[in-house]
């Protein structure tokens, strides 16, 4: 168990500043997720934690202990690879035992340790099967159990479920969350899928070009993004963004905005669509069952509105847009959030 802290860590490759003055602390036993587009520095941060890279400046601490001179194996951090890297010719049990057998630990200890881990992860019923006969989630379990028998201080997972079917991803992410709670260990996670990131993590760290943009609980980041960048990274459909003047032209009631507001952001679920003669025209309807996503063109902008249920709308019909009182996000010219009016 460990908390992991970065203090002013920077790392560059030639001219490319991959990680720029990064500060954060992963609390003990947290499910902590790094989120950002490609090139934003997620992989470099993982390598810095693992010890595969040394920071150019700054310091990394595990439980307050500086890691600068600690070699990767001595850091005792486990990595679960994207493809899981299970041995296909071994059963789940043999896979889990593998790291201990390799270290020539005595049989009784191995048995006890494996039993402890497999009980915790509720996988007794799959131990005799080879990976080929396991579901995606079960394979994940085996990979994690194999990492867990070594009793690492933390786990790193780099986009472990992106290769699965959409349906399987939904199930597996819940499994992952349960597993992390069962094993009570720090889990550091990287993904490209914002829904997955919000679903699993206790805390998220949002990166942009090697810099930390915001850290916090997923719903806090979603409800109160500190910048237009963070706002646009979370939520599907993404937040509507419009220049203040355009927004005023499109909305039926003038939004109550703070001083210095350049851009207004409205989440699709906070946009209300009324079937009456307004400045908007419905251009597309996506019925998803639980929600209906409307594309509405107003003031030269395509707005997305996520309506609950299956309301009746027609393509080409005029509509009026309005916004919930608390649904307005204001950003200044630099894209930083202003306290909402």
């Amino acid at each position: 168990m460990a908390s992991i802290r970065f203090e002013n860590v920077s790392k560059s490759y030639g001219d490319v500043l991959a990680v720029d003055q990064v500060n954060f602390e992963v609390p003990d036993n947290a499910f902590f997720c790094f989120f950002g587009p490609p090139l934003s520095g997620k992989s470099t941060i993982l390598k810095l934690i693992l010890g595969l890279e040394t920071p150019d400046s700054g310091e990394i601490f595990f439980d307050g202990r500086p890691m600068r001179d600690i070699s990767p194996p001595d850091r005792n951090v486990a990595m679960v690879f994207q493809n899981l890297a299970l041995f296909p010719h071994m059963t789940a049990l043999e896979n889990v035992r593998f790291p201990l057998v390799e270290r020539k630990i005595d049989g009784a200890t191995i048995k006890a340790r494996v039993a402890q881990v497999t009980d915790k992860l509720h996988m007794a019923h799959i131990l005799h099967k080879p990976p080929a006969q396991l579901s995606g989630g079960e394979r994940q379990r085996v990979a994690i159990a194999r990492a867990l028998v070594r009793d690492p201080v933390a786990y790193l997972m780099d986009d472990p479920i992106s290769a699965l079917d959409a349906r399987l991803r939904e199930e597996t992410r819940v499994e992952l969350r349960r597993m992390q709670q069962d094993m009570a260990k720090t889990l550091i996670y990287v993904t490209h899928d914002q829904e997955e990131a919000m679903s699993v993590s206790d805390q998220m760290l949002i990166l942009e070009a090697g810099r930390v943009r915001q850290i916090g609980a997923p719903h806090d980041l979603y409800d109160a993004p500190n910048s237009a960048y963070v706002a646009s990274m979370l939520g599907a459909p993404a937040m509507n963004m419009a220049d203040t003047s355009d927004a005023i032209g499109a909305l039926s009631t003038a939004p109550d905005i703070g001083r210095g507001t350049q851009t207004i952001g409205i989440r699709p679920e906070h946009l209300k669509v009324a079937r009456k003669n307004g400045p908007g025209r419905v251009t597309a309807i996506e019925p998803l069952g639980a929600t209906t996503v409307l594309s509405v063109e107003a003031a030269g902008i395509t707005w997305k509105a996520a309506l609950r249920g299956q309301p009746d709308h027609e393509i080409g019909a005029p509509v009026e847009l309005s916004v919930d009182a608390g649904g307005l996000h204001c950003f200044d010219a630099h894209g930083n959030a202003l306290s909402a009016a």
Binding site: V174, M198, P218, H219, L234
Partner: peptide
């Protein structure tokens, strides 16, 4: 109630 997933606009309760 088991796991609660808070995913932006909605919350999935297991």
């Amino acid at each position: 109630v088991g796991l609660v997933e808070r995913i932006g606009a909605r919350t999935i309760v297991h």
